[in-house]
Design a protein around this nucleic acid. Sequence first.
DNA 1: CATGAATGAGTCTTCATTCAT
DNA 2: GATGAATGAAGACTCATTCAT
Lengths: 210, 210, 210, 210
Amino acid sequence: MTPVASTLKPRKLPVQARSAVTVGALHAATIQVLVREGLKRCTTTRVAERAGTSVGSLYQYYPNRDALLRAVLEQHLDGIADAVEAACRASRGRGVAEMAEMAVHAYLGAKLRDAEESRALYSVAEERGGAEIVARGRVRMVAALAEMLSSAADARFDDPELVGTIALAAVLGPVQIVLKGLAPAGLNEKLGPELVVLMTAYLKASANAS
Amino acid sequence: MTPVASTLKPRKLPVQARSAVTVGALHAATIQVLVREGLKRCTTTRVAERAGTSVGSLYQYYPNRDALLRAVLEQHLDGIADAVEAACRASRGRGVAEMAEMAVHAYLGAKLRDAEESRALYSVAEERGGAEIVARGRVRMVAALAEMLSSAADARFDDPELVGTIALAAVLGPVQIVLKGLAPAGLNEKLGPELVVLMTAYLKASANAS
Amino acid sequence: MTPVASTLKPRKLPVQARSAVTVGALHAATIQVLVREGLKRCTTTRVAERAGTSVGSLYQYYPNRDALLRAVLEQHLDGIADAVEAACRASRGRGVAEMAEMAVHAYLGAKLRDAEESRALYSVAEERGGAEIVARGRVRMVAALAEMLSSAADARFDDPELVGTIALAAVLGPVQIVLKGLAPAGLNEKLGPELVVLMTAYLKASANAS
Amino acid sequence: MTPVASTLKPRKLPVQARSAVTVGALHAATIQVLVREGLKRCTTTRVAERAGTSVGSLYQYYPNRDALLRAVLEQHLDGIADAVEAACRASRGRGVAEMAEMAVHAYLGAKLRDAEESRALYSVAEERGGAEIVARGRVRMVAALAEMLSSAADARFDDPELVGTIALAAVLGPVQIVLKGLAPAGLNEKLGPELVVLMTAYLKASANAS
DNA sequence: CATGAATGAGTCTTCATTCAT
DNA sequence: GATGAATGAAGACTCATTCAT
């Protein structure tokens, strides 16, 4: 655990059932307020109110507002990373095309499951300390991708880490556009296939001629 | 054009020479404060102070803090779009590989020229109204890319608009990682070539077999 | 009732005992500051300071400065209206002269009880939204007067509403002069009797010859 | 001239034609802004702009904002007083009923000629220093009324000054209600006659039995 | 432990007034 | 003389955080 992590986690472990419920409610409330009001107006009081508790209680679980926001972001990204990791594990030993397809769909599915939540958290990711959390999530996913790529049946990669990094980041951009509702007509439906094309093409282009 | 646009532009046109200086200083100061202090601490007072003027003067030219921020963002993105447009114009009629190379380098060069500025403005883009400005910039670039792709000597695209959108967004992701300084060792140097590989591969994969 | 009314009332109902004290202190402080400093210098900070609290607390109970001012005005006018209503009820069935006397004294008594407060609130009545509150108070008093007049033992009125309106407004003018301390020497003492003469004369002149 | 008066008058006399025009434009603009924006938003810049000049020029003629507002108020009230004085002069030696009628109509006519202006200036009259100006206007009118009353053919008054003061103030109230548009239906049309009834009744009641 | 009232530093924004051009 | 850019004090309002109940 880095020192950063210590401020991210709830102040005390939710050993009691009540605590777990409260923490869950606070997380959900944070996202709702974030969606409805935006980051600046996502205040501790408002979150507590929406969660059905008091500010005092909020501070029982989080040392400050930033910690709450970071925790929510982290949980969100962990969910995405979990999905990608699982997909990568399941694709070990397959061909590159299959890998691309599964990874893309895992990522896309997780991200679009709660599109509003994903969208709302972009601003949190830009806050002080947000980048590190995003980076941690990416590290997990890149590691999973790299490990998967190394096991590809039909390709060999000199630097699977690098290829994974680029591939992941490349997919991220188009997804963001769609999430923000700024995509040109038609993109929304074609996003999945198009991303598969994108990733497959890149992976193949990056593989060693063998 | 849009109602948003009207609030982006300075409130009054500088009639006297002093004004132009003040406006310029405010732009520069905004970026500096953004870089050094972050979006939240980028207050009107601080910007005015760094610019060597008073808050009053700031409000003489911008109706509110958001308008200032948006104006700075818009100017930045216009610069990027200019560079990409020029590159696209220059690449008309070339082959797809050349196109990818020129477009990537134009974008990358413009973005990395003031890396700190680019980095700082990501948070502004997440603010209320920021997305529209980003979208406007993207529209310009996508149009330029689409037009360029349509003129490719060695490929034909069914939907150059869509391909341009995806290609641009795909390039954006890796650049962002590098800008934020979160790239794994070695990526920084290989970014350019890698992006060319990425874009070329995608363009070729998207082109009609002809 | 009206949408205005909703912003007049304290934001939250005092759950704890402290709250009631704070709200009361704010009311009193507002009037004091209004009297001592005038409307323009009656700032939220000054009111809070005089009340022995903080601006934050003020805003806990009133959504904005105007709401505070209006609430104070409303409370003041409600007190006046209460007095007039009571007098009117008590005078039902009497003769017109008696009615005039009782109504005038009720109004005058209530208004002069806190002359400074009355004086200070004239400016508030001119603020945005003040007129409506004054109007509401007047409506109450006119209704009471009209009802009283309709029960007069020695006169009959075609339009008691109209007569009440004029009578009330006519009395208001001279009172205002005295409250503002701008009356010529001697008026202060003779105000009561003179207003009775005024109102009695008008009522009799407006009554149907019967 | 009292010291107060010196700050009320334009800083320099409009000896030149241009000055007179500017001062006139400033007065008119002040009233317009007052009507459209209210007292608080009636700023020197806005007034100058509406008048077609610059703030700098405004300060050429008025030492400060308050002086401008007071000058406008004074001019307005002088107009009213002129009208009442003329009517009083014209009514010398008539009967009390005629006097009431002429005075009321003179006052009413002057006040309603520019109803918006009258309405807008109520707030100015409540500002620091406004009361004195209002009082000066009243003094003029009361003097005229008193002199008129003293010449009545059919009545004698012990204290014409007092009677004039009350009569004037009594008329003022109902007029204010109508000006503010808060009068109950029907009052607007009947205002004149009703005020004549009011004033006549009061004058007769105040006259010595002779 | 929970609650929510109190705090007050810190933001944005406005505007009267000045003065260099 | 006219202009309008610059100034900065001052005001309204918000919100993270604390702590008495």
